[in-house]
Structures are given as structure tokens and as C-alpha cells.
Simulated scan of single mutants.
Amino acid sequence: MTSTLVIGGSGGVGRVIARRFAERGDDVVITSRDKARADEAAAEVGPRTGTLALDLARPETIEAALAGVTAVDNLVITAVGQAPNTLANLNVPDAIAAVTMKLVGYAETVRVLRDRFTPGAAVVLFGGLAKERPYPGSTVVTTFNAGITGLVRTLAIEIAPHRVNALHSGLIGDSPKWRDVPNPPHADRTPIGRLVTMAEIADATEFLLRNTGMNAHDLYVDGGILVT
């Protein structure tokens, strides 16, 4: 039985990814900072879905939180921190928390679990298109998403022969953040004429985990917005 761990799988695209793997028959574990929220999501994802409370912004707690995880075939880390933060009005505590979660928390999670990876295990880390397309208020988001590229490259060496890739999505049109927003930004600028969907992000995640030739790559799933 394949074991899939989705960090941040209690909501949004993380929950859709968790459901995709549960529907194909994996044993799935999802995490949230709030155990009750993870339990609620697990009831919707599937009957064999386990849950854990995990806070990536407190990396010193990650090892203990993951103590019950014994084997991992697929590790997906989707957790995000997107509070606007500009250079002109830099909120230092928020910036420290966001960067700690996204870079230190991601790295510590992989470190803790690497000895529990099965022989063919693979990792997908979520970044974001802000690393290529900064926007007002994205100072911290752009910085830590660019850092995901560096993290993936060094992890590919550190955890070899296990594979690790990054997925950077554009705005996700049917995500909780954007699905009820009229005329969301960029929707009319993508060559495909719309924003990408959560199902497309889940499919791309599965591709990165499945395809054994993909390693140390940044995959952009954005409907082609980067060429416009």
C-alpha cells in the first residue's frame, strides 16, 4: 500500500491533492496546525485518511509531531503563508514567521522524514508564481518562493537517490481564495483563456511524484501566463 503524506492537506488545493491520492487507494495522512480541522477534512477525503497536528512555523516541534509516521512513499508540502508585506511597511514578525514556515519548516520536515522514505519515495514542495512575477505586497512571498528553488536543488543532492521537485502554480481559479472573486486578475491574460484549476494542480503533483525522470525541477502550472 502506498503511503502519501500531505502537509497542509486540510484545505484548498492540499485537500484536493489528498483526495486524489485517497481515491486511487493510497493510505493518506493530512496535517493542519489545527487537529480538529485536519480531522474534519479527513472525513471528506476518505475513510483511511489519518491526521496530524503540525506547525511548520515552529520547526523545533516538527520531529515530535511526525514521530508516528513510519514510512513515506509520497511527501507533498503545500502549506503557504501569503500575508501581504511590503518593503516600505515591513512587518518583521510576520516576515520571520512566513520565511521560517516556508523554508526552515519545509527543510526540517524533509530532514525528519528522509530515513523513513521508501526506496522509490519522492517529494513535491509548493512554491508560487510570485517568484517570477512580483506584485505589490509580495516582497516576502516572492523571496521565500524563490528560496524554494534553491531548497529543491540542494535537497536533490542531500536526499539522493530520492527525488524532489517544486510546483509553482498561477492563480487557481476554483480555489477558496479566488472562486467567488468576480474578474480575478490574470484570467483574461493566460493563453488558455482562464485560470488553472485545483484538479490540474493535483494532476501535476501526481506527475512529479510518478515520473522517475523528474528531479530538481521547477514546474510552472500557470496556463502559460509567463509568456505574456
Rank of each mutant, 00 (worst) to 15 (best):
G68D: 15
F126L: 06
E108R: 06
D222H: 13
T49S: 10
P182Q: 07
K102T: 06
T86K: 14
D222Y: 09
A95V: 13
R19M: 15
R114T: 11
A71D: 12
L167Y: 00
N211H: 15
D34Q: 01
R24A: 05
V28K: 06
G14Q: 05
T31P: 04
T139H: 14
V13S: 01
L113E: 02
V196C: 01
T2D: 10
I201D: 01
G12S: 01
R20W: 14
V140A: 06
L75W: 13
D94W: 11
Y135F: 11
R133M: 12
H217N: 12
I30P: 04
R58L: 15
A43W: 13
G137K: 07
G81K: 05
I225M: 12
T2G: 03
D180E: 02
T31L: 01
V140Q: 08
E200P: 03
G137N: 05
M1H: 15
L171D: 05
R114A: 07
Y135G: 00
D27P: 09
R19S: 14
G9N: 12
V80G: 14
R116Y: 08
L66A: 00
R15P: 06
I148F: 09
T118S: 09
T2K: 07
G147K: 08
K102H: 13
V104C: 09
G8M: 01
P185K: 15
A71N: 08
R163S: 10
G120E: 11
T61M: 06
H217W: 13
T100S: 00
T139F: 15
L54Y: 04
E44R: 15
E23P: 02
R24H: 11
V29D: 08
E206T: 05
F117H: 14
G193M: 04
L209E: 09
V152K: 05
N183T: 15
S32T: 02
A36V: 07
G127C: 14
N183I: 12
P47L: 11
V152Q: 02
D203Y: 13
A121E: 10
G193A: 06
T142R: 11
T142W: 10
P84I: 00
V196E: 00
L219Y: 03
P134Y: 03
E63F: 06
T109G: 05
D174E: 00
V140I: 09
L125E: 14
V72Y: 00
S138G: 09
N74Y: 04
A107F: 15
L66T: 06
N89K: 11
T86Y: 13
A42H: 14
F126T: 10
T139P: 13
T70C: 07
L66V: 05
H217K: 11
D115G: 10
R210A: 08
L103Y: 04
N211K: 13
V80P: 12
N91L: 10
H217D: 14
P93L: 01
A202N: 11
T109M: 03
F126I: 05
S3G: 15
R114M: 08
P119E: 12
P182H: 09
G9M: 09
L167N: 00
D73A: 05
N74V: 04
A42T: 13
D34V: 11
T118D: 04
T49L: 08
L195R: 10
V99L: 03
A42G: 14
G14H: 08
